[in-house]
């Protein structure tokens, strides 16, 4: 799948993702280092916060777990479309996903 990520500086980049890895890993692996992801995807920080701007038609993202909600609620930049990118797994149906990296808390 391919997705588009917009950095904090407003630069939009197309990324060819590896399926099976998380969105967080795919963003980081593409060389965008502003997504710190300090806990490495263990649901213990909120440093991989993104806004989901577009989901492909007919596809639903998995619901947020309670832990993901609690972590996101601590952000000063929480929006309705906030997600922790470590909790989204890249798969072919998500081709065309668009996300923006949230400001740093």
């Amino acid at each position: 799948m391919k997705f588009t990520v917009t950095t904090r500086e407003g630069e939009a980049r197309d990324v060819e993702a590896r399926d099976g890895l998380s969105l967080m890993q795919n963003i980081r692996n593409s060389g965008i280092e502003e997504l710190h992801a300090i806990c490495g995807g263990s649901l213990s920080c909120a440093t991989c916060h993104v806004y989901v701007e577009r989901v492909p038609a007919g596809v639903a993202l998995p619901e947020k777990s309670r832990d993901e909600r609690d972590l996101l609620e601590a952000s000063d930049f929480l929006e309705d479309n906030s997600r922790l990118s470590c909790q989204l797994t890249c798969r072919p149906e998500l081709d065309g996903l668009r996300v923006t990296i949230a400001p740093e808390d």
């Binding site: 213990s44 909120a46 309670r66 609690d70 972590l71 609620e73 601590a74």
Partner: peptide
């Protein structure tokens, strides 16, 4: 997790 986040 809520306490962890808010207790920081």
């Amino acid at each position: 997790t809520k306490d962890y986040v808010q207790g920081r």
